[in-house]
Amino acid sequence: MAKVPIQFTLNGSEKAEFVESGATLLNALRDKVGDTSPKGGCHQGTCGACSVIIDGELRLSCLTLAETCSGAAIITTAGLAEGGVLHPLQRAFLDAFASQCGFCTPGMIMAAKALLDHTPDPSREDVVEALSGNICRCTGYEPIIQAVLTAARSNSQNVA
């Protein structure tokens, strides 16, 4: 099958890969680049476990063709901690018991980050809406919502 060369940055590092035409970004990240933080829960865009941020926007990597991502800047949960220090969202998820089995967590954190990047001081309704495409079957939504609100508060304190 024809291979397509693609180049992009992943969490700030340059990456270049040959992918099969038609391969999803999810498979390219997991199988080629080795970043397994985006998860494949449904491969049909309904669970949100594969969420990543592409050029500042939240995207489902299972519905994104890898070959459309040449030149893009891609962020995943694996790249959030800096110098071993957890991102405020990661810290809040850890402290608030917002992660049970952990499978939905990287996608949840991406959806939350995309929200806070655009809306640093969200209302509870904003958070609920932002996470509405991410399914948690351990049904820990309330701690997850609280964690995002806590992270937003700690962010604004840092700025102040």
Partner: peptide, 9 residues
């Protein structure tokens, strides 16, 4: 196991 979950590790 939370540190692994929140970092995608």
């Amino acid at each position: 196991d939370s540190p692994g979950h929140v970092t995608g590790k």
